Simulated assay, not measured.
Amino acid sequence: MYIEKIQSPVDLKGLDLKALQVVADETRRAVLNRVSKHGGHVGPNLGFVEATVALHYVFNAPKDKLVFDVSHQSYPHKVLTGRASGFLGDVDDMNAISGYSSPAECPEYDNFEVGHTSTSISLATGLQKARDVKGTDENIIAIIGDGSLSGGEAFEGLSEASELGTGIIIVVNDNEMSIAENHGGIYKNLRALRESGGTCEHNWFKAWGFEYKYLEEGNNIEKLIEVFRSVKDTDKPTVVHIHTEKGHGYAPAVKNKEAWHWGLPFNLEDGSRPVRNADGTMPEVVACEDYAELFSDWMLREMKHDKTLIAVTAGTPTAAGFTPDKRKEAGKQHIDMGIAEEQAVAMISGMAKGGLH
C-alpha cells in the first residue's frame, strides 16, 4: 500500500501516473474507512481526492501554501501529509486526527485552524501579502467550493486578491452542490461556464481581473496535473475552475449528495446505518422525537394559515427539518441563502420591517 509509506508529498514526486491513480484509490478507501467508522464529511472529501493528489504532486508543500475552505475537503490532504494512520488505524488513531485543518495537529502543512466557510481566499491573501513584502517566491493556493462562494467573505477575498495583483491561485471546486443545492446568483455563472466549457461570454472571474482556466474533468489526475502545472509560479491572480463530482467513487454518496455531505458511522458495503458493534450486536437505539422534524412540521402547518410566515435557512435546510420534500411544500415561504449568513440576518430584518414573519 502506497499511502502507508507516504510521509510527506515529497514521496509522490517520483511516482508515475499509474501509481498516482493507485494512491488516489487508496486515499479514497482510507477516507471511506474513517468516515464509515468515525463519521465525518463524506461527499466533499471523496470528490476532491484526485485534485489533492495532483496538487501535492505539482506543488511543493510546505513551502507552497495550501489553504482549505471549511476543511470539508481536507481529509485527502491529511492522508498525504503523514496522517494516514488517522484513516487506517483504530478508533484511538482516528480520534487523534481532527476533522478540520489544524496547525495544532500538523503545523507544517495545515496553515490555519479552519472550521467555517468562505474564509480561504481571505486567509490566502494574507499569505500573498506576506510573501510579497518579504520577497519570497512560494505559491499561494486557496481551495474553495462546496457552496462556499455564496458567503460574502469569499467576494471580499476575491476583491482583495485582484487588488493585490500578484500571484495567487484560487482553485474553485465546483461540484454543483453546497450542503444542499446551491443558491445565489454566482452559481448561474458557474453553470454557464460549465455548459460552455469555460468559454461563455460572461465570466464572473475575468470581470474581476483574474486569469481563468476551466477543467471539465475535475476527477482526472492527468488533466489536473496539466492544469496545475500551467499555473504554477504564476505572477497574476488566477482562478482554476474544476468540475468535480461530489461523493465520487462511492455510489450512495453520488446518488444522494445532500444526505451524504456529512454523516454518522455507516455500513461501508451498502451505506446503511447504524453499524454493528464489534461483537456483532446492534447499538442500542433510544427512541426520541426529532426536534428538526417537529419544528418543520409545525412551520408548514402554520404557513398554510399565514402566508407572511417565512422560513430562512443558510445552506443547511435539513438541519431545520426542511428536507427536499418539505422545501417543495413550503415553496416561496422557504428561502435558502446558501452560506450567506450575514445576508440572511439582514434580509430577515428587512422582511420583518416589511411586515413578514
Rank of each mutant, 00 (worst) to 15 (best):
I6Y: 07
D16S: 08
D16G: 07
V22P: 02
V23M: 04
D25E: 10
R29T: 01
A30L: 07
V31W: 04
N45Q: 06
G47S: 12
G47Y: 06
V58S: 05
V58H: 04
V58F: 10
F59G: 00
P76T: 06
G82A: 12
R83N: 03
S85N: 09
S85R: 06
D92V: 09
M94Q: 09
N95E: 08
G99P: 01
Y109E: 05
N111P: 07
I121H: 03
S122T: 13
Q128L: 14
G135N: 13
D137H: 12
I143T: 00
I144Y: 09
L149F: 15
L149C: 15
G157L: 02
L158V: 05
L158D: 01
A161S: 07
G165I: 03
T166C: 01
N173Y: 02
N173R: 03
S178M: 12
G185Q: 07
K188S: 13
R194M: 03
R194G: 01
E195L: 10
W208M: 12
Y212M: 09
Y212L: 13
Y214V: 04
I221H: 02
E222H: 13
S230F: 11
V231K: 03
V231M: 04
T234W: 08
I242M: 11
K246D: 02
A253K: 01
V254E: 07
N256R: 06
G263E: 13
L264F: 11
L268N: 03
R273E: 12
F295G: 01
W298K: 10
K307C: 11
G315L: 09
T316Y: 11
G321C: 11
G321F: 07
P324Q: 05
R327P: 03
A330P: 02
K332E: 08
D336E: 09
D336T: 09
Q343E: 13
A344R: 09
A346N: 13
M351H: 06
